[in-house]
């Protein structure tokens, strides 16, 4: 089939303004978006710049905005975007843009500096005060189940950059950092719950979440992030009362 990719382009060395460029290519409905991007880079235009690594949705490198939605370019087939007829020439282009709300470095590559700062702000590591036992700390399967979904997060930033609260206030911690906070607050081994709750219970913290659910829609790992954030709110209220 024939499809057109309309790709956001910006080279800081030569362009004063970003622009969109169309590439008409031959593709297969079963191609991933990352495959067609690779095809363009390999065969047509080597200047096209994007991040990618594992190509199967676990490294979190290739988050981008595809037809208006944040997703991983390696985890979506053209047919899932509605380009499914192998014999057709599609007029409607596939629009590919960088993740919104982040500074743009080049083409589809964005600057993650603030994203990582927020990640680090929630102390993303286990804190224990009691001395470790000789063997493993015990956890029931139910204890682990509580944090399993949260530990799936690949830090691709699809959620945080899809959140309207982040768009209006870039200082908002955002869903990814809050999910990381959840992962440790609800880890039965962690002994710094209060300290962690203090971090998210701030004006730019959890209360900027208005359960808009964009993060849930955007998450390529299908994590119900809003549910996790709600559990954190519950925990905060319980602490206060």
């Amino acid at each position: 089939m024939k499809v057109t990719l309309r790709i956001f382009r910006f080279n800081p060395e030569t362009d004063s303004e970003p622009y969109y460029k169309d590439y008409e290519i031959e593709a297969d409905p079963k191609d991933r978006v990352i495959d067609v991007l690779h095809y363009i880079k390999n065969e047509i235009d080597g200047t096209l710049t994007f991040r990618r690594s594992c190509l199967h949705g676990i490294c979190g490198s290739d988050g981008m905005r595809i037809n208006g939605k944040n997703m991983l370019a390696c985890s979506i087939l053209l047919q899932d975007l509605g380009y499914s007829d192998a014999n057709k020439t599609y007029k409607k282009p596939i629009v590919i843009e960088p993740l919104p709300g982040m500074p743009i470095i080049k083409d589809l590559v964005t600057d993650f500096t603030d994203f990582w700062k927020k990640y680090e702000a929630v102390k993303p590591y286990l804190i224990t005060k009691s001395p470790p036992p000789e063997r493993e700390r015990l956890q029931s399967p139910e204890d682990v189940e509580l944090i399993m979904e949260a530990s799936k997060c690949i830090l691709c930033a699809c959620c945080t950059t899809s959140c309207p609260s982040t768009w209006s206030n870039e200082d908002y911690l955002g869903p990814a950092a809050l999910l990381k906070a959840y992962r440790f607050i609800f880890d039965s081994r962690d002994e710094a719950t209060d300290e962690r709750l203090d971090i998210i219970d701030t004006p730019n913290g959890i209360w900027r979440c208005h359960t808009i659910f964009h993060c849930v829609q955007a998450c390529p790992k299908e994590i119900n992030i809003t549910w996790h954030i709600s559990k954190l709110k519950q925990k905060l209220v319980e602490r206060e009362i």
Partner: peptide, 14 residues
């Protein structure tokens, strides 16, 4: 495990 890695557990919590 002590560093915080979330392992799957068996019924005994191991």
């Amino acid at each position: 495990e002590h560093m915080g890695m979330p392992f799957s557990r068996n019924e005994k919590g191991l």
